[in-house]
């Protein structure tokens, strides 16, 4: 009765073989192609779905001191509207009179609806195997509900304009012992670090390619990583202090990069090496 069975092991093995082939003296272009093949081979059965499922559960389940769910959380398109909401974030929220990105807004809702303290709501921004993050799961689910939506980050409000302008300056801010800024690696076309291609985030095409593919399940880490994680880890490599989670600089930089991606189809959660 059984016809064929493929095992995850076969996929893992294939991945290992791609890596090995890459190491034996091919030119750079074909190496990048092989890595792309590997990414495509992994698209089917993306473990990010496990985070999405957990996030949906967390969204709908009553929790916290107030024993309420997050289903009344307003992500910008009205209370409880999740579909397409991420493609229009960060944005200005009149109830708090400030611009918020998804993480900041989720933390806000966990305070107002769950009844957590702000410190509790932002206590664990990024997960690890032995310590999972509810934020990762919620972000995975909310972003998955924007899959296929067109990026349309608003800029009509003065505070949205301000966040974008500040984000742009933060992007070009050079500091630390290595004099790095975001622009050091992300302001030119067709460059790479080692073999990793670098998107030019100052241009629409590059920003679209990068922003619309986070969050991603990172195979090398076995974890779902959010766009906030990506920013956080870039600053670590920039030799900066740690970017505060849901901080104003984080929101501003996200606003700058998200708006540069306007017009593109949102594709995440994806899978990356």
């Amino acid at each position: 009765m059984r016809i064929r069975a493929w095992y995850a092991g076969a996929i893992a093995l294939a991945a290992g073989m791609v890596a090995a082939t890459a190491a034996v003296g091919q030119d750079a272009a074909s190496t990048a192609q092989e890595i792309e093949k590997y990414r495509q081979a992994l698209q089917d059965g993306n473990p990010a779905e496990l985070w999405e499922a957990r996030g949906e559960g967390l969204w709908k389940k009553p929790a916290g001191p107030k024993n309420a769910s997050l289903e009344k959380c307003d992500l910008g398109l009205g209370p409880g509207v999740v579909k397409g909401a991420y493609a229009q974030l960060p944005r200005y929220f009149a109830d708090v009179d400030r611009v918020m990105d998804l993480e900041t807004r989720l933390a806000h809702c966990r305070v107002t609806l769950h009844g957590l303290t702000p410190a509790q709501a932002t206590a664990r921004p990024f997960g690890s195997p032995d310590n999972r993050s509810d934020n990762d799961a919620l972000v995975a689910w909310v972003t998955s509900e924007s899959k296929g939506a067109t990026m349309n980050v608003p800029s009509a409000h003065a505070k949205e304009k301000e966040a974008f302008a500040l984000g742009e300056k933060i992007f070009y801010f050079r500091g630390g012992p290595y004099d790095f800024s975001c622009a050091t690696c992300h302001a030119a076309d067709n460059t790479r670090i080692r073999l990793q291609d670098l998107p030019n985030l100052t241009k629409q095409a590059g920003a679209q390619l990068a922003y619309t593919t986070w969050p991603a399940y990172r195979v090398s880490q076995g974890e779902l990583r959010t766009f906030q994680w990506r920013l956080n880890d870039c600053f670590r490599q920039q030799r900066f202090p740690e970017l505060g989670f849901a901080s104003d600089a984080s929101i501003a930089l996200t606003a700058f990069l998200a708006r540069n991606a306007n017009g593109a189809e949102f594709k995440a959660p994806t899978i990356k090496r």
Binding site: M1, R2, A5, Y7, G9
Partner: peptide
């Protein structure tokens, strides 16, 4: 009825994905 039976080991990746077909 059992349509698939597999024995796995530690070489399988974290968060495994399995795909199979039957009639």
């Amino acid at each position: 009825k059992t349509v698939l039976s597999a024995q796995w080991g530690p070489a399988i990746a974290k968060n495994p994905f399995l795909s199979f077909r039957f009639k």
